[in-house]
């Protein structure tokens, strides 16, 4: 009986020993596994903008796939570099993405030397690592280009697109240019055609057919020609002010007498009616009070 008991205890001991080894062996693995949980990937889309051939800026949009959909990621710290090397000497600006996932930087005057050194320019954007995202890099390569705008008789708009080849500005053919007029925070077509393709001389021509379009207080309108999201040249835009609009003087209703006007500006018919009623009724009340006075006097006499 006793040996049998001893044998059973031995079996139990071996089982505990095995369990202990398994636990000791698994714990570090489990801890490692927690560390190994992959962070979601961040995508940085870098864009170049040439604003009216005067300033140049870069815009980055941070996106990540959440629940199968790309969502804009806010509060991501980003650094912009000119050239292909994200080196400290190439840093042109820093930013933090806004709720739309966008951060922008104007290419500063300090980067002039690097900017002028080549006709094709590279940019790099690097996001700093966060609790959620790893460090991510985005790149962009553009060919320097500019767009010019002019007008001709008969309300004709001419725009010309050119790119820098070595040190010469050369016309570009076959690129879509949007010709429009600024209106209420957007761009309105100048006629029924919104987009024109440049010819071999890099030019497009559009006829301005918008009659009686409200301008500023001098009747001025702002024409625009732009290239949007071009793979080679990025985003280019140019503006020109022309006196083709119509001046509509502000017709203020503020001092007019209306039902919805401010105090003291009610319509005359309402004032006459209301005051006639008030005066009529209160005249009766005053008359009655005088009659009461008469009654009091009669009693006192």
């Amino acid at each position: 009986m006793k040996p049998l008991l001893k044998q059973t205890n031995m079996k139990k001991y071996k089982l505990f020993q095995l369990l202990f080894i398994v636990i000791i062996g698994l714990v570090p693995n489990l801890l490692m596994a927690q560390d190994a949980v992959e962070k979601p990937s961040l995508k940085l889309s870098l864009k170049y903008f040439n604003d009216n051939n005067k300033t140049h800026h870069l815009e980055v949009q941070a996106k990540s796939k959440i629940d199968g959909k790309f969502q804009m990621i806010a509060n991501v710290p980003v650094q912009f570099y000119i050239g292909s090397d994200p080196d400290k000497s190439n840093l042109i600006g820093k930013g933090i993405t806004n709720p739309k996932g966008i951060a922008t930087v104007i290419i500063p005057a300090t980067a002039k030397e690097q900017w002028q050194s080549t006709a094709n320019q590279n940019f790099v954007v690097v996001s700093a690592p966060t609790k959620v995202y790893e460090e991510t890099k985005g790149e962009l390569a553009i060919t320097k280009a500019k767009i010019q705008i002019d007008t001709a008789e008969g309300r004709i708009i001419n725009a010309k697109l050119m790119s820098l080849v070595d040190t010469t500005w050369t016309p570009i053919a076959g690129v879509d240019v949007i010709v429009g007029v600024k209106r209420l925070g957007g761009i309105l077509n100048v006629n029924e055609t919104p987009t024109y393709s440049t010819d071999t001389s890099g030019a497009v021509m559009a006829e301005f057919k918008r009659d009686s379009l409200p301008g500023d207080n001098k009747g001025n309108l702002t024409l625009t020609a732009s290239v949007i999201d071009n793979d080679v040249y990025g985003n280019l835009s140019v503006e020109m002010v022309v006196p083709w609009g119509k001046y509509y003087p502000f017709d203020s209703k503020f001092d007019e007498r209306t039902l919805f006007a401010r105090r003291g500006h009610s319509p005359l018919w309402l004032e006459i009616l209301a005051y006639a009623i008030i005066v009529g009724v209160w005249a009766i009340i005053i008359h009655l009070l005088l009659q009461l006075r008469k009654t009091i006097k009669l009693g006192v006499e």
Binding site: L288, Q291, K294, T295, L298, G299
Partner: peptide
């Protein structure tokens, strides 16, 4: 002041 005078009644009735 009310003295039941006919003039007083006349005034109040009218009022």
């Amino acid at each position: 002041f009310w003295k039941d005078k006919p003039e007083q009644f006349k005034i109040t009735d009218k009022a």
